[in-house]
Design a protein around this nucleic acid. Structure first.
Lengths: 206, 206
DNA sequence: GTCTATATGGCGATAGAC
DNA sequence: GTCTATCGCCATATAGAC
């Protein structure tokens, strides 16, 4: 009996992907050369072309993956069958954890979306984003009198802002408030989970 | 009597500066070519070199100006002699107004600071940023019992986050929530001044 | 699959005519 | 001050040996 081979990427391919992710995230597509990626992956420059043909194709692959991880995270939690307050807690908790391991992720997406907004067209279609679902859930809480009357869109954006901003502005904040001490900043970020959960809960008390 | 001539930039120079600002903000230094700037300014490529010698020098000029306008705004309000609550209102109001006219400003600074953190060293020295002043003011309000006990650093970052994030994430939010309608998004941003002022005041009630 | 060598093109920067 | 012409470099990408 023939066992069909799983489509598993070669080790070299994986190395390139990892290196490309790292460099693109930090420096953007224009600020990253193929040589730079090859060096980071400790392989020959030509191999990048062998596996991905063009820089653009490689970039798209990285970008789509990054964008999905950024978006799907929230969608996922929104759909869980738990109380509203628990959802907020979990969104904050898991979003901050995601970003702790991907500090450059939000800045990367922002920069590349500004640079070329056309990317969004295809992506948002495929991602199948349904903001209405989130909005509705918030509206229901208001109707039930559980939280005070707020614009659901503003509220949702507030939650995201409080989670994401410290990572976007990290180089600045870390330097200004923590003398560029990475460890202390990360401790601060961890405290933040509790801090902004309280902040948000308090702000919507009815 | 000789009237000393004011050091006034030529029209060409101004055009270059304006075009450079526009292109750099959106595409970053690596994503912007001198030809691109020249085209946007409707002048010959060589004139850029004539006035600013190198791309790097031109970029630094733009970046420093952008960074200052981004930072000094808060400092300014912090120092005003008005009540704490008024300060918060004014920071929100004027920060959002600034960003309405400079949507790309925060993303630009973030990207360039990530790409080359060394820039921060010199800049933060010169900018003479004193976060302690802000922190102290918040601490005093807590001691006076005017607001509940919050970590002043978290609180300060929260205020900034709520103001700045909608501009950083504008392309995404505008598309997802407003079908990419610019006017509606701007109306939304204006509502936001009142919305997040309430949100913040509510969240720190003692 | 991996390497070296090379083609091709664009960019930053300068020289020099006007 | 403004333009054209050009140099030198580096990046993407391909060809072809192994």
């Amino acid at each position: 009996m023939v066992k069909y081979k799983e489509k598993s990427a070669s080790e070299t391919e994986e190395r390139i992907l990892e290196a490309a992710k790292h460099e693109f995230m930090r420096f953007g597509i224009e600020g990253t050369s193929i040589q730079q990626i090859a060096d980071a992956a400790c392989i020959n420059k030509s191999l990048v072309h062998y596996y991905f043909r063009t820089k653009e194709k490689l970039f798209k692959r990285i970008f789509i993956e990054a964008f999905s991880s950024f978006i799907s995270h929230v969608e996922d939690i929104i759909n869980r069958d738990i109380s509203f307050q628990k959802k907020i807690e979990q969104i904050i908790e898991s979003y901050i954890d995601l970003l702790k391991n991907n500090s450059y992720l939000p800045g990367f997406i922002i920069h590349e979306v500004n640079r070329n907004p056309d990317r969004l067209f295809e992506l948002i279609q495929n991602a199948n984003i349904k903001p209405q679902k989130i909005i509705n859930q918030i509206s229901i809480e208001i109707e039930k009198g559980k939280i005070r009357k707020v614009d659901p869109r503003h509220f949702f954006i507030n939650v995201l802002a409080l989670c994401i901003f410290p990572f976007i502005a990290r180089p600045l904040l870390q330097r200004i408030f923590f003398n560029n001490n990475e460890k202390n900043y990360m401790k601060f970020i961890d405290e933040r989970k509790k801090e902004i959960t309280e902040f948000i809960i308090q702000s919507i008390k009815s």
